[in-house]
């Protein structure tokens, strides 16, 4: 085990996978000579050269599509979006090509590509740069969606994503890059996609969440503990595949659920999971499931308004108290 930042963990995962497989290459804006807009690719150009660490023009649609084409013929591209806000420009290539070519060709092509970059709001970047984008992708069969919230998960899941034969949307967090944590050194440390992780154990209420919201959930759990309430905090880690067994287990344990997510409520990840819980574990529920999400508005710039728009530990505590009828 070594203590490192989330950023260093991603860097290590990329480095190890590029050493392991010469077909893996990294392409995106500023990934090479600039060392990455968020320095995730620091030093990779020096080790792997300009053919495998490639500065692209600002052409998200174009280089995402180039990556899909390269994956169709056997390479394993890692395409970096400076942020997932810019991936909207590439949605056609991701949703119409990457996620569908395997099916439309009846399995003639595998599309082993990773699209990665930060998602969600940082601080005061306003509406166009502060979007949690995971549900755009988890909506579509054909791609997998991964949202690591800790340095160890970032490393283990990125390695799994690169080795996976399907398109993987790998969503990081701008506010997580400097976060430190223990990370296994083992080059074969791979976290399989589709396995949730119980980040905290408790038996009174379940807070289910993913991505950087696990830290909000854990903060809420600490506050609740002071009131004598013990929360289970389940980190899904991947949205597709989804660890339904882990969800059902925590529901069966606490019988009360709050779903927390960074994005908007309408057709959000929480909406899907609430629907599945009521279909599959209705008898275990002692209260309606509540959701805590971003306010249903584009993100405002003003600091006070932004704080009001984001999901907070206070809102999670309030929701937990409601499902506990406290």
């Amino acid at each position: 085990m070594a203590v490192m930042t989330y950023r260093e963990a991603l860097n290590q995962a990329l480095r190890e996978e590029m050493r392991r497989d010469p077909d893996v290459f990294l392409m995106g804006e500023e990934v090479a000579e600039y060392d990455g807009a968020y320095k995730v690719s620091k030093g990779l150009l020096g080790e792997f050269g300009p053919q495998r660490v490639v500065d692209s023009p600002i052409s998200e649609l174009g280089f995402a599509g180039l990556g899909v084409g390269a994956a169709m013929v056997g390479l394993r591209p890692v395409i970096e979006f400076m942020t997932f806000n810019f991936a909207h420009l590439a949605l056609d290539q991701i949703l119409n090509n990457a996620t569908k070519l395997h099916y439309m060709s009846d399995g003639q092509f595998d599309i082993p590509i990773v699209f990665r970059g930060p998602t969600g709001a940082a601080l005061q970047l306003a509406a166009q740069h502060s979007q949690a984008c995971e549900t755009y992708y988890s909506h579509a069969p054909g791609c997998k969606v991964v949202t690591p919230g800790t340095p160890a998960d970032a490393k283990g899941l990125l390695k799994a994503a690169i080795r996976d034969d399907d398109p993987v949307i790998f969503m990081e967090g701008e506010l997580l890059y400097n976060m430190k944590g223990e990370v296994p050194d083992d080059e074969d440390f791979v976290i399989p996609l589709g396995v949730a992780d119980l980040k905290r154990e408790g038996s009174d209420v379940s807070i289910i969440t993913h991505g950087k919201m696990i830290h909000v959930a854990l903060a809420a759990a600490s506050k609740l503990q002071k009131d004598g309430v013990e929360a289970d905090v389940l980190d899904l880690r991947t949205i597709r595949p989804l660890d339904m067994d882990a969800i059902l287990a925590t529901v069966a344990k606490t019988n009360r659920v709050v779903y927390l997510e960074e994005g908007w409520p309408y057709a959000g990840t929480g909406a899907q999971i609430v629907s599945m819980i009521q279909e599959e574990a209705f008898d275990h529920l002692d209260a309606p499931i509540l959701r805590v999400t971003q306010a249903d508005i584009p993100m405002p710039y003003a600091k006070n308004l932004e704080m009001l728009a984001k999901p907070s530990a206070e809102l999670v505590v309030e929701a937990c108290n409601k499902v506990l009828y406290r």
Binding site: G62, A70, M72, V73, G74, L75, Q93, N96, D106, Q108
Partner: peptide, 28 residues
């Protein structure tokens, strides 16, 4: 229509969306 065995790569329904893919084949 796809035929990977003869390197016929489709068959694409969105106008212009096959152009980046071809660029990717050339990249490979």
């Amino acid at each position: 229509i796809f035929g990977t065995h003869v390197r016929f790569m489709g068959g694409h329904g969105i106008v212009g969306a096959q152009v980046p893919l071809a660029t990717g084949f050339a990249w490979k």
